[in-house]
Design a protein around this nucleic acid. Structure first.
Lengths: 203, 203, 203, 203
DNA sequence: CATGAATGAGGTTTCATTCAT
DNA sequence: GATGAATGAAACCTCATTCAT
């Protein structure tokens, strides 16, 4: 995906098919939000995207494949620019802060995508294995980052899982709350969230 | 529910109807775990509970009501003894630790119930409003507890939501991870989780 | 099946469900004849039997199971009384004649069943394995009968497959022709068919 | 079709369209064998022939027309050289033997075509009327041949239908059996089949 | 209280076919 | 001539729910 905005804005589409595919993707985001991955059906997606259910099967093998491919797109969009952001500093602790900042900024920029990601993590059975695998592969560098942080001795000597559990997880959760309420965290709150996370893991 | 064990053990049931109702509840727990709240259907519940689909409608108005009532039962079971535990100490910070401990102990004792609660929070649309409301009402004392903690000046001056977000939320999330892996946290890990939570919110 | 007439006549049905099941079976026969096993669909069967498509799934697991169970019923009906007829004589050659006679009589009595059996043999993929297996098991005694005939030395020393191929197969085929034309073979023609078969295999 | 080998070998095709048409024809044969005429769909044919579904509609009006035209081609290929073979002898009985021999040889040479013909005869509803009519017209000379045989007095005085039923029909059936098992009849067996047929109809 | 039977509505997916390019 | 994209219709099947017994 060269332009991650394509999820959000439909203006200036060149190819007809991309237009339809985007409409489908948009519909999936909206429906995931409205009725959850549980209630999302191909029929509803098609109706909302103003295409025939059969059309969806041109682009995707089946429902699980559709969600999988969209998840992969979402992951790419979400992680876009993350590596550069993280590598803009050298200290592992600063890098983790940059990572958390990236998560917050992207979640605020693309709340629907963040919600979709969250939903897929709760219902992995609905997603084709490729999407799950891709998602996990994307997480590996983050785990390594946390491992470097642990190795630096600046934080508690606990598993990366626990680290993530008290940093990225509550941040994502908090942003979900905002999303559901239709609000956005202000700068002070953003700094608070990062501070809470860092304080949790610091020695 | 006077006896929370009734979820777990089917032996020594006195009333026939309670027997069937319990079988249904058990089936809901098992299916939520196996196929998620998504894939759970009345037909599957009925088959697993060895009752007719029609029987379920004797006890519950419809599917959403069934899940709602079960959620209420679960909440009761889960919170059983919580108040006494919390009030066994007087310092708000100690009370919060007691609360977190209670969450951990109950999640380990009733992993299926914890999983069910988690699932319902992800798919509130599936649950009748009564269950959601009851669930929220149950949370109010906890919010008050956190408010008392904030007032004590021993912790950061942040919203209860953020407090819960870096204490109870990651703990519940971590226990879900264990549940999915079929493991249980050891004592050291339990203490780590509480420490992480407290360190996050402490001044 | 205690009364093979139940396929044909709907009168005097006692249990409601058997009534519906019979209507479904009848519809399958009629549709197999009209549009072939190819064109037979659950929706068409349901409409013709005046039941909901969902009702069919109460009686049968799926389409293949439906055809399989009906095939088994048909085989039973068709073979009803065959053993006694065959064993009413002792000479293998006479027994084969009795067998061929039975085939002719039953095909004339239950032309729809004969047609259905024929159709299933052409499209075994449509039938659940149980039906196919049952069908094959039913053929075994016939093969043994032909083996006894071969052992008797009264006929050519060829494989049972070839024997059947020039006796039962053309007879069944010829009766299919009659069925399609809405005619029935007269006594002379019946004797001719048996004579042709016997002459083919005799030394 | 001037060259019946074109079904089998794709090399040395001159016109592009004929190449594609042949690919389609080949795909139809293969799919008829693999999934039956029942399961054969335009989409599957297109994919296997590596053409667009729309391309098929350039050559054929619709699915029934496609099968009809292919059936006509097949009939032509199958009957190729038959007349000469039959007329190479003058006795009606010898001519019938030649005919049966021709059926056997062609079925062994083009088993896929024989299978396709067999399949179409079982599901005439799938074929456009032209193909069915052509197929019947092709049979007329054979019926006349049998009529001449009957007139010769060398065989039983029975209808041509019965004659064919105990000669060509079981032979075709037997060869289908071989085809399904992936075997071929040896010379002895071929002679046996012809002998069985002749013995059946001889006085 | 309990149920087996029944169903309309809707689910996913494939079909034969068309059309703009 | 050739196609990729598109679709209405129809395929199979499951759903939550009701009702006579």
């Amino acid at each position: 995906m060269t332009n991650e905005q394509s999820f959000i804005y439909n203006e200036d589409m060149r190819k007809i098919d991309e237009n339809k595919k985007d409409a489908i993707t948009q519909a999936v985001f909206q429906l995931t939000q409205e009725v959850g991955l549980v209630g999302l059906s191909i029929a509803k997606v098609a109706k909302l995207a103003a295409v025939s259910p059969a059309t969806i099967y041109i682009y995707y093998k089946d429902k699980a494949d559709m969600l999988s491919q969209i998840l992969i797109q979402v992951k790419d969009t979400f992680d876009d620019g993350m590596e550069e952001t993280i590598l803009s500093v050298s200290e592992p602790l600063e890098q983790v802060k940059k990572f958390l900042n990236h998560v917050i900024r992207q979640s605020m920029k693309y709340p629907q995508l963040a919600y979709f990601m969250h939903a897929t993590m709760e219902s992995p059975n609905e997603i084709a294995p490729e999407g799950i695998a891709y998602s996990q592969k994307r997480t590996e560098p983050i785990i390594e980052l946390y491992n470097r942080l642990i190795a630096s001795g600046k934080v508690k000597n606990i598993s990366p899982d626990l680290m993530i559990g008290w940093t990225a997880v509550p941040i994502a959760d908090q942003l979900q709350l905002h999303f559901r309420n239709g609000t956005l965290p202000n700068e002070a709150e953003i700094q608070q969230m990062i501070e809470l996370s860092i304080d949790a893991i610091k020695k």
